[in-house]
Amino acid sequence: MDTEWCADPLDMATKITENENRQRIQEQLDRAKCSEQPDEDENGTRYCLDCAEVIDPRRVAAVNAVRCVVCATAREARDDSRLRRHGGVNRIVEDLARPREVFNAGTEL
Rank of each mutant, 00 (worst) to 15 (best):
62 A>Y: 15
59 R>H: 07
71 C>K: 04
76 E>Q: 03
66 V>H: 08
67 R>D: 06
89 V>E: 09
87 G>Q: 03
81 S>F: 03
85 R>T: 05
93 V>R: 00
55 I>Q: 03
66 V>W: 01
94 E>I: 14
59 R>L: 15
73 T>G: 10
64 N>D: 11
62 A>N: 13
70 V>W: 05
76 E>H: 15
74 A>R: 01
82 R>Q: 01
55 I>H: 01
64 N>Y: 05
56 D>L: 12
96 L>G: 12
89 V>T: 08
97 A>M: 15
69 V>E: 02
97 A>F: 06
68 C>A: 02
83 L>H: 00
61 A>V: 10
69 V>C: 08
58 R>A: 13
96 L>V: 15
71 C>S: 01
64 N>I: 07
85 R>M: 14
92 I>L: 04
97 A>S: 12
70 V>R: 12
66 V>Y: 00
76 E>C: 14
82 R>G: 03
62 A>T: 06
74 A>W: 00
60 V>H: 14
77 A>R: 03
76 E>W: 06
57 P>C: 07
62 A>H: 13
55 I>F: 04
95 D>L: 07
75 R>I: 04
94 E>H: 07
79 D>K: 02
90 N>Q: 08
78 R>K: 10
89 V>M: 05
71 C>P: 04
95 D>V: 04
89 V>Q: 09
95 D>P: 05
79 D>W: 07
84 R>E: 11
92 I>P: 06
95 D>H: 15
84 R>P: 00
68 C>K: 11
63 V>W: 14
61 A>P: 08
86 H>T: 15
69 V>A: 01
97 A>L: 14
75 R>P: 14
81 S>C: 03
56 D>Q: 02
55 I>D: 12
97 A>I: 02
87 G>N: 09
92 I>S: 15
59 R>G: 00
70 V>T: 10
76 E>G: 10
92 I>F: 10
79 D>F: 13
60 V>D: 04
65 A>G: 13
87 G>D: 01
61 A>Y: 12
97 A>N: 12
97 A>R: 11
86 H>E: 04
63 V>D: 09
76 E>F: 03
62 A>R: 13
62 A>V: 08
83 L>N: 10
93 V>K: 06
78 R>Q: 03
64 N>V: 06
91 R>N: 13
75 R>H: 09
93 V>E: 11
86 H>G: 08
55 I>S: 07
88 G>C: 06
67 R>F: 08
78 R>G: 02
91 R>T: 10
92 I>N: 08
61 A>K: 15
91 R>V: 10
83 L>P: 01
60 V>C: 14
62 A>G: 08
71 C>V: 10
69 V>S: 09
55 I>E: 08
75 R>D: 11
60 V>M: 15
96 L>S: 09
67 R>P: 06
75 R>E: 04
90 N>M: 11
88 G>D: 00
